[in-house]
Amino acid sequence: MEIIETHGLCKRYGDAMRVSHLDLRVPEGCVYGFLGPNGAGKSTTLKMILGLVHPTAGSIQVLGKTMDSANRLDILRQVGSLIESPSYYGHLTGEENLRVVQSLRGVPEKNIREVLQIVRLDGQRDKLAGHYSLGMKQRLGIAAALLGYPKVLILDEPTNGLDPAGIQEMRELICDLPRRFGMTVVVSSHLLSEIDQMADHVGIIREGELVFQDTLETLHSRSTHHLALRTTNDPVAQALLRDRGLPCQEEDGYLILPILPDGETARLTGFLAENRLGILRLEERQKSLEDIFLELTGKAASL
């Protein structure tokens, strides 16, 4: 079951199309990484999913219901969110802040104690929120989003500004939610390394357009191995290899070849030596996820 679906979702501000014909598919019970450079349209998309921004065109379904004026409140009762930065009253303690949200949402008072434990703030419940560190404020915001134990949790850049220890804590918390509570978590980020350690499914957006959407495993499969060869005369070597039926192409001063068995690689180097070509360098390489991300977001590449 798809917990969130969008069809042809668009948002235009003046002459600028910030989100263009987006078709998101978020499976139930997953951590969905919504990835893209700053300004790609991630926050605008999440705000439309939450009904905070009205789409220019397209439709949104959340939990099987269309997000519109008739269904919005019913949907949002089952959705928690933290968009951009957490809101809090600095003169109130962490627990008092959550009590305000608990009263507004009409959820049981015991949930306050439980969510403070989930986000590891139970030891800081009596401290003024204004004195919290940035990481503690982020966790307080997530605690508020969790108060009603939503079926869907939407987090916009939750690790922004955190130190390495805070990032690790946030990552562990997010990964734990689907397993412990059956939640579906949508988390946006501009950092591929973060999404790579949290998500099961990934959507990559570039200039408002979706350029990749599939499992993280499928994204990793694009990271293929190849051989990089440099000789004393690459144009001659390229011609000889092609005559031999071996596909290769020049790239940044190297000839790029497919991965070969060891025996075939040895025969290849011997063949080049017989033709008076010296082997200057032969490397096995693998395209990194960062390279793939830059191809998808920095060039006109799509799947």
Rank of each mutant, 00 (worst) to 15 (best):
E5M: 00
T6R: 03
K11I: 03
R12Q: 14
D15F: 03
M17E: 13
L22Q: 03
D23K: 00
G29M: 07
C30N: 02
Y32M: 09
P37F: 06
K47C: 04
K47F: 06
G64T: 02
M67I: 10
L76G: 00
V79T: 01
L82W: 02
I83Q: 02
E84Y: 04
S87E: 03
L92Y: 13
G94V: 08
N97W: 05
L98Y: 05
L98C: 05
Q102L: 00
R113E: 13
V119T: 07
Q124R: 14
S133C: 04
G135T: 13
Q138F: 08
L153W: 11
I154A: 04
E157W: 11
N160K: 13
L162E: 06
D163W: 10
G166Y: 08
M170P: 11
E172C: 02
R179T: 14
R180Q: 15
S188H: 12
H190Y: 11
S193I: 07
E194T: 14
D196S: 09
V202D: 12
G203W: 10
R206I: 01
L210W: 01
S223V: 03
L229K: 05
R230M: 09
T231W: 03
T232V: 06
T232N: 11
D234T: 01
L241Y: 08
G245E: 00
C248F: 00
D252A: 15
L255N: 00
L257E: 07
I259Q: 09
P261C: 08
A266V: 12
G270P: 00
L272R: 06
N275R: 15
N275V: 01
N275T: 01
E284H: 08
R285E: 12
L289D: 07
D291W: 07
L294I: 15
L294A: 07
